[in-house]
Design a protein around this nucleic acid. Structure first.
Length: 430
RNA sequence: GGAGGGAUGGCCGAGCGGUUGAAGGCGGCGGUCUUGAAAACCGCUGUGGGGGAAACUCCACCCUGGGUUCGAAUCCCAGUCCCUCCGCCA
């Protein structure tokens, strides 16, 4: 959520920033937010004065009663005061609620270093790592390779769950687990993250905190019945809410967390995009990195966190490039986002495998996450960062496609072998 | 699922409907004492918002939301969460 004071005092800049990221029909909403702020500011002094009077009057009533005197006209005056107070409280609540409603639907402002542009075409490549994998045979896509190896099955998943689900079998399931364990090991032991095993169901408030609600309900799976629980679309949600409504000790920041969770997305690819294979599923798994930090170090931490995700790709020997997303391609909560794209030989293209964002105080303001600099003094909103480190299914795809050999077997990256009981090659099922 | 009990400041814990933003204790911070520390003693010590250069001052907040009342931490209603017992259960 944006600071209402920024909207009030820098309306034009806010409008410009939000327009650059593709928001439309802003003018009216922004003007309303500002107007509501003015109304709020007009109500508050009157309300507080009335409350002060009532308090004083109450003390006089108490004195009169103690002295055994009649307080009838005091009571009458008090009744009138209270009526006015109730009315003003109602007005104020309505104004604040309306303002909140509008503010919750506005995306974050882009950081000044973010390239301006309408869509993904304006994204810029920052750097590349590794040589694009070349073969002296025609490499297969994982949707052929996996089933041929007998480790990946789409048809059986369709039987029980429908489109956009997959089953991993045998060595495939084991490889999946190895990838998870490898990533968690690197992030906890080498990068200093605290491992978290969070709930996979979260309530509405948690999703408002991260920015998934109220605008993106259609992307989520909601539980049936009268519960207000949703399946997590990413571990970012439970991790961000780990310190909801808390004031953190500034001396202990940054706090770095890593979680492995399944992720559930309802509208994943309703555009007929990536209908084949494991790329876009209703259910997938992800290792998520999350940091709570201070404003002055959040961009440094953004680089660090992105680097931590890159290191996973490098250890696996997977060629990738880092992109900085343009204003038009960023997610709702992000002020700046790096995408890591891994090379997929079967598709002759780089595909997103990680997305690392600084949301600045956007989520912190929604979720009430503050910190006290130096452990004392006035609390201010923290900055939160999130990034995939990495998406498990896409990593599995990348390992299969990049490690494939002419006979259909796949070489297991060295870094994964300790997690695969030493297995070096995945052989086709016979 | 059934039956009870509870929710107060960083923590524990009091609180006849009327100077109670809230006793007391612990913890924390500062000081006295000490070569240093401990102990003892003294003082300070919640959050958010408004006004003020500042001293300071005003308002709100005792789980949440409603209600009663001139006035609610205290009374009423609803909800959430926690605890105990019973049942069920990986």
């Amino acid at each position: 959520m944006l600071d209402p004071a920024i909207v009030r005092d820098h309306l034009d800049e806010v409008e410009k920033g939000l327009t650059e990221r593709g928001a439309t029909n802003l003018k009216a909403d922004l003007a309303t937010i500002k107007e509501l702020d003015t109304r709020r500011k007009a109500i508050i002094p009157n309300l507080e004065e009335a409350r002060r009077e009532r308090k004083e009057l109450g003390a006089r009533v108490a004195l009169a009663k103690r002295a055994g005197e009649s307080a009838d006209d005091l009571l009458k005056k008090g009744r009138a005061l209270s009526d006015g107070i109730h009315e003003q409280e109602k007005d104020l609540a309505a104004v604040e609620q309306e303002q909140q409603k509008l503010l919750l639907r506005l995306p974050n402002l882009p950081h000044k270093s973010v390239p301006r542009g309408a869509n993904e075409k304006a994204n810029q490549e920052i750097n590349r790592w590794g040589e694009v994998t070349r073969f002296d045979f025609t490499p297969k896509a994982h949707w052929d390779l996996g089933p041929e190896l007998g480790i990946l099955d789409f048809e059986r998943a369709t039987q029980m769950s429908g489109a956009r689900f997959a089953v991993l079998l045998g060595v495939g399931a084991k490889l999946n687990r190895a990838i998870i364990n490898f990533m968690l090991a690197v992030h906890t032991k080498e990068h200093g993250y605290i491992e978290v095993a969070p709930p996979f169901l979260v309530n509405e408030e948690a999703l408002i905190g991260t920015g998934n609600l109220p605008r993106f309900e259609a992307d989520l799976f909601k539980m049936a019945g009268n519960s207000n629980l949703y399946l997590v679309p990413t571990a970012e949600v439970p991790l961000a809410n780990l310190h909801r409504e808390e004031i953190l000790d500034g001396r202990r920041l940054p706090l770095s967390y890593v979680a492995y969770t399944p992720c559930f997305r309802s509208e994943a690819g309703s555009y007929g995009k990536d209908v084949r294979g494991l790329i876009r599923q209703h259910q997938f798994e992800k290792i998520e990195l999350f940091k709570f930090t201070t404003p002055d170090q959040s961009y440094r931490e953004h680089e660090t966190l992105t680097r931590h995700a890159e290191i996973i790709l490098e250890k696996l020997g997977l060629p990738y490039r880092r992109m900085v997303l343009s204003t038009g391609d960023m997610g709702f909560a992000a002020a700046k986002t790096y995408d890591l794209e891994v090379w997929l030989p079967g598709q002759e293209t780089y595909r997103e495998i990680s997305s690392c964002s600084n949301t600045e105080a956007f989520q912190a303001r929604r979720a009430g996450i503050k910190f006290r600099p130096g452990g004392v003094g006035k609390a201010e909103f923290a900055h939160t960062l999130n990034g995939s480190g990495l998406a498990v299914g896409r990593t599995l795809i990348a390992v299969l496609e990049n490690g494939q050999q002419a006979d259909g077997s796949v070489v297991v990256p060295e870094a994964l072998r300790p997690f695969m009981d030493g297995q070096e090659v995945i052989e086709p099922a016979r």
